[in-house]
Design a protein around this nucleic acid. Structure first.
Lengths: 213, 213
DNA sequence: ACATATATTGACCATATTGGTCGGTTGTGC
DNA sequence: GCACAACCGACCAATATGGTCAATATATGT
C-alpha cells in the first residue's frame, strides 16, 4: 500500500503528512476528519484515497513514519551523545527543533497516539509505541555522568527537575510563537537555545559541584 | 435561562458540569457533541435541553461558572497569601487540588476555552477570559518577597523555573493517576503535597540565601 | 386518593458530516 | 495522438448532529 504516496514530490508529501498529523493529534483517530485533512493539505479527496486505501491506512502509515523518523535521528546521534546531562539535553533540544521544522506536529501526534486509550486505536499500535518509548527513554538516560552532582543533591529529583524545566520552556515558547516562518530561521532557533541554556545554567550551578562549573 | 439547572440537586448538577467540561475541553465548542455529554452525564437528551436552551447556552454557562469558581476561591484566600513564593505556591496547589476533586476538568476547560481561536468561540468570551486571566496572574505574583533570593540569582528566571517544576510535577502526576477515587483521598493528596515540597526544597536551597533556609 | 404541575425520557426530525467511490479531466512521456 | 497514471470533486449511503415534543414518571398540594 501507499507506494504511490512515497513517490510523491517531498513538498506535497510533507504537506499531507503535516495536515494529517495535526488533525489526528487534535481529534484522535475516530473524530479526525479526512475532509479536514484534504482541506488543510490542499489536495482533493480523490487524491488522498488514491495514496491511501483508507483513513485507517493513512493513520498506520503516520505512526510508522513517526517512529522511523525518531529512530533514525536517535541512531544517527546515539554515538556522540555527551555524558553531561545538560549538554546532552541541549543536543536533544536541537534535534527536536530540527524535526519540528519539517514536521511541527510530529511530537503532538506521537503523544496523542500513545496516550489515546479509546478503542479506536488498536492494541497493536499501543504496544509498538510502548516498546519504542521504552527504548527511547532508556537511551536518553543511558550513560549520563552522575558524578558531577553535589553529594547532598538527590540526583533522581534533580534530573526530573531539569527535565521539567526543559519541557516547561519548550511548552511556553511553543505557545507564544505559533509563527512558523520564524521557527525555521536559524538565528531565531539559536536565540531559543541560548535562552534555554541560561535557564539550565541556573540549575547547573545549583546541582553541580563547583569544580565542574 | 438555566434557572432550572441551578435548582438541580448538586450531585446530578456536577455530573452534568463535569461531563460537559470534559467534552468541551477535549473537542472545543464546535466539535463537542451534546449526545456525548448526555451519555457521559447519564441523563437524557431532553433533560439537557430542558436545562439549557442550546449548546451555546450550556457553553456560556460553563465559562461563567468556571470564572466564578476561580474568582471565589481566589478572593477567599487572597488576604492570607504567604509572602514566600514557595509557601504561596504550595497553597495554590492545595486550592487547585480541592477544586479538582469537585471539577476535575475545570482547569483543562478554562485553558482550552481561552486558547481556542476558532471562530466558534466568540470574542466576548475571549475578552472576558483575558481580563480574568490578567487579574489572576497579577494577584498570583503580587507581594512576593523577593529579598530572600541570593543576589547572584536572576529572580525572574528563578520564579519561572519554580513554576515550570510545579507544572511539570502536576502534569506528571495527572498523567499517571487517572484514578479519581484515590484523588479524593485526603491522605493521598497529602502525599502529593509532600512529594511536591521535596522538589521545591531543592530549588529553595538553590535559590535562597542561607539565612532563609 | 386524586388531581395538578413539574421533571425527565427517548424516539424522532431535518440537516450536516462522515469515509469512501468513480466517471471524468488533466498532465506526462513517447 | 496515444496510452497511462495522477488527480479532481460531485456524489453515495451511512451516520451523527443540535434540537423538539408527545408521552411518562415523579413530586406536590389538597
Amino acid at each position: 500500500m501507499h507506494e504511490k504516496f512515497k513517490l510523491l514530490n517531498p513538498e506535497k508529501r510533507d504537506r499531507i503528512i503535516n495536515a494529517a498529523m495535526q488533525e489526528f493529534s487534535e481529534k484522535g483517530f475516530k473524530n479526525a476528519s479526512t475532509n479536514e485533512i484534504v482541506k488543510k493539505a490542499g489536495i482533493s479527496k480523490g487524491a488522498l484515497f488514491h495514496y491511501f486505501s483508507s483513513k485507517q491506512e493513512l493513520f498506520e502509515f503516520l505512526y510508522h513514519y513517526s517512529s522511523d523518523v525518531m529512530v533514525e535521528i536517535m541512531e544517527s546521534q546515539i554515538d556522540n551523545m555527551p555524558d553531561d546531562v545538560f549538554e546532552r539535553w541541549i543536543a536533544f533540544a536541537k534535534l527536536k527543533m530540527g524535526v519540528a521544522v519539517q514536521y511541527p506536529n510530529l511530537a503532538d501526534f506521537m503523544q496523542r497516539t500513545f496516550k489515546d486509550d479509546t478503542t479506536d486505536v488498536q492494541k497493536l499500535i499501543k504496544e509498538e509505541f510502548a516498546r519504542f518509548s521504552k527504548d527511547f527513554s532508556q537511551k536518553v538516560y543511558q550513560g549520563i555522568d552522575l558524578s558531577k552532582f553535589k553529594p547532598d543533591v538527590d540526583v533522581q529529583k534533580a534530573l526530573q527537575t531539569i527535565w521539567w524545566v526543559l519541557e516547561g520552556y519548550a511548552l511556553t515558547k511553543q505557545q507564544e510563537s505559533i509563527n512558523l516562518t520564524q521557527a525555521r530561521d536559524a538565528e531565531f532557533q539559536q536565540g531559543l537555545i541560548d535562552e534555554m541554556e541560561s535557564y539550565l545554567a541556573i540549575l547547573r550551578k545549583s546541582f553541580y559541584q563547583e569544580e565542574y562549573l
